[in-house]
Design a protein around this nucleic acid. Structure first.
Lengths: 248, 248
DNA sequence: GGGCGCATTTGATCCTGATCAAGGCAATCA
DNA sequence: TGATTGCCTTGATCAGGATCAAATGCGCCC
């Protein structure tokens, strides 16, 4: 599953996703030990900034728990979120020392970090890592391009439905679509954050959320609690092809 | 320079960009020879389709000359271009055999292709290739995210100005911004293609192009010939930070 | 309990860009 | 030469979402 390339860590993963995402699936042995030595953790509170656009960024990292967001800001304050980082997602770029966008902790956040230089050196001697990162980056690129379709061509209602469908799928694993029963999950974003992600204003987000509620597509029990009684019904509202995409 | 990650091949490159982009900068020797053996060329006429979304895609390729576009289409026909491939750009994904979007020749096009399986096998034994592809993919991801800001938050006028600025820079090399004199270039896209790229309608594209002309920002000599008398003036219209981005 | 701050909802109005509809222009072809 | 076609421009109108403004609800702290 993916929200901008964020894929869930397999359920049997240990505490440090980079092990599994970037390395474990392909190799064992000394590389793992080297990664283990290099890693360190950083925690952030909800709302706290991780790095600002333009800052030096001398580490790469993997999200352990919580959600981080990537946003771009224009001079006059217009903001566009360009990615959400969920647990097991990777952030930072081997080979570049400057952050291209703001990274912010949307919820309380723990990241597993590696200093950039030694990580880059390890990449040279451990080809599996580069290959794994390439796969992950290609997934993110696909997700970003899917988001471009949403931003450029979908209506406000379709945008909201698409976001809710993605979050619903994520919280119930890959088989959400097959699930017949109702799905419920917590919304990790404020209306404003949703707006920044969808290229809308917070007022429009609020109105369309309530429109979907009026039409019985979702139920808003508490402010941040969403119940989707019928996932297929929600999926119809997204404007996407009904088949839900190709599975590799 | 980059239009969705399309970087110009360095001027001293030979005829097959993949050599230079994916391999040459880092290594010489037998890998080059193997790539040379594997490659073959395919040509397409302007307007011709290269692959449809959902097709099997058993090759990866690099653009030699011409321009290809990547587009996504919704069931009801709404279209969003999600990338332009310029010479030296890479298309196709090691590890996946199905195309995620339509690829179309926007102009006459020549691509340098490699069958996917042997290319993947070579990646395993030649780590430089994966590393180079990772760099290229990260560049594309950044470009896609920049485009998300454009699609989500810019006005129609800013969108047009941004596209023209990118094309103007591309046609004059990296130093366009420094160039004091007028810049002129051919527009490789129809109004409709521009609209699909920018998330607008072709009528709005036409109107805003003429508005920029009225305001003296650009001159439209012939239909497809653009003259930018003062690049800085155009850059002001894009809404982007004046510094034009960080250079690594 | 009262007051404050924040997220959200709701309402009224405005405006940008979409939509619908002609018309122009240049290249190609009969 | 006139007809056709593709691409672009222009005009009139419409509507979806933005903007401005106010109210509501909720948690929190004193």
């Amino acid at each position: 599953m993916s929200v901008h390339g964020l894929k869930l860590a397999p359920p049997d993963c240990g505490d440090c996703p980079i092990r599994h995402r970037a390395v474990c699936s392909r190799c064992d042995g000394p590389e793992l030990a080297r990664l283990e030595e290099m890693k360190y953790y950083r925690s952030f509170e909800a709302g706290q900034n991780v790095v600002w656009s333009g800052d030096r960024m001398d580490f790469v990292a993997s999200v352990v728990s919580g959600i981080a967001s990537l946003t771009q800001t224009m001079e006059d304050g217009r903001r566009q979120m360009v990615g959400l980082l969920l647990p097991s997602d990777f952030v930072g770029r081997p080979g570049r020392g400057v952050a291209p966008y703001d990274v912010t902790a949307t919820t309380d956040l723990v990241m597993c970090c590696f200093r950039r230089k030694p990580f880059e050196e390890m990449m040279v001697t451990t080809p599996h890592v580069a290959q794994r990162l390439l796969e992950m980056t290609l997934d993110e690129l696909d997700a970003a391009r899917e988001w471009m379709l949403l931003l450029g061509r979908k209506t406000a209602r379709e945008k909201i439905a698409s976001l809710l469908a993605i979050l619903a799928r994520r919280d119930t694993g890959l088989k959400a679509k097959a699930a017949k029963g109702p799905i419920s999950f917590d919304l990790p974003l404020t209306r404003e954050e949703m707006a920044d992600y969808l290229g809308l204003t917070l007022e429009t987000v609020s109105r369309q959320m309530n429109a979907l509620k009026r039409d019985g597509v979702v139920e808003l029990a508490e402010r941040r609690r969403i119940v989707v009684p019928n996932f297929d019904r929600l999926a119809e509202e997204t404007g996407d092809d009904s088949d839900g995409g190709f599975l590799s």
